[in-house]
Design a protein around this nucleic acid. Structure first.
Lengths: 145, 145
DNA sequence: TCATGCGCAACATCAAATGTTACAAATAAA
DNA sequence: TTTATTTGTAACATTTGATGTTGCGCATGA
């Protein structure tokens, strides 16, 4: 399949929403992400189901952020969008009868597990607030020039 | 796309070849992997191009291992089969003009890079010889029962 | 000469994200 | 109440790269 960009897309949207006090329409967000409003609704639905954003139908409606930036991590967002497969690489057969294959599987799975734990751990360490601060710092530096 | 199982498939084959002194035909290997002989040839071609195996055409021909088990790592095989994409997760846009997106990208890329370095490092630490030893140990233990 | 096997091109298939179309339902404003 | 706006969702098409399949040419040993 294509590489899953839902995490980075949603982070992009959330940070914009964090610095904007009115709702964004799906259409507006689709423009930011260069995609379709339906794709936006579909992906954001996962965030809404977990309480990270709210949506309002009808005129003047749209999407707003609804979480504490200091308590929400990249891992929370990753999980909310339903990202399952982290790796494009995997085992050929999860339950082999061949002893050779079991040895291979345990070695490959061990390496993948270590990397997955590191990735998940890292995503869980970074909050939306930290990213927002980085953005603010960049804006500040650019204004000073 | 489907998850890339070429690394584990090729490791499986290489370990079998390491404990077998006659050539395996593509057809035989395809049986071991529950796939097609053409898929085997296609994947093994990468290993052959890097000198890890040899192939002989014609009657009595087939595939034999051609590398030093102590000097060949899982990383060598991973690279020989042309595994490019390690992650199913990625950035939405590699060269964004939006400052928010650049902040998001650097955070996500940083987490992915750390995990990739760990995975690559781990694959580079494990040799085929170590896997073969593990297999031998299992066979030994089973015979003792 | 013939059976066995690899080499390779040219498709077909698969799976999961992404893209698209169509329409129903909710809401604010005229 | 009517209308324009906006989300909710189903249904289907597209994309991408690994995997699967067919067909045929070439090499080798018996």
């Amino acid at each position: 399949m294509r590489t899953d960009s839902r995490l980075s897309r949603m982070l992009h949207v959330l940070l914009h929403m964090a610095r904007h006090d009115r709702p964004y329409t799906s259409e507006h967000i689709a423009g930011m992400l260069q995609t379709n409003a339906v794709v936006v609704r579909r992906t954001m639905a996962g965030l809404r189901a977990n309480g990270y954003v709210r949506s309002v139908t009808g005129q003047g409606g749209g999407w707003t952020i609804a979480c504490d930036l200091n308590k929400t991590t990249l891992l929370d967002i990753h999980r909310a969008v339903g990202g399952r497969h982290i790796f494009a690489i995997g085992l050929d057969n999860d339950n082999p009868s061949c002893a050779v294959e079991r040895v291979v599987n345990s070695a490959v799975a061990d390496a993948l597990d270590r990397a997955e734990r590191l990735l998940i751990g890292r995503l869980g360490e970074v909050t939306l607030a930290e990213l927002a601060e980085q953005f603010d710092a960049i804006c500040h530096a650019e204004l000073k020039q």
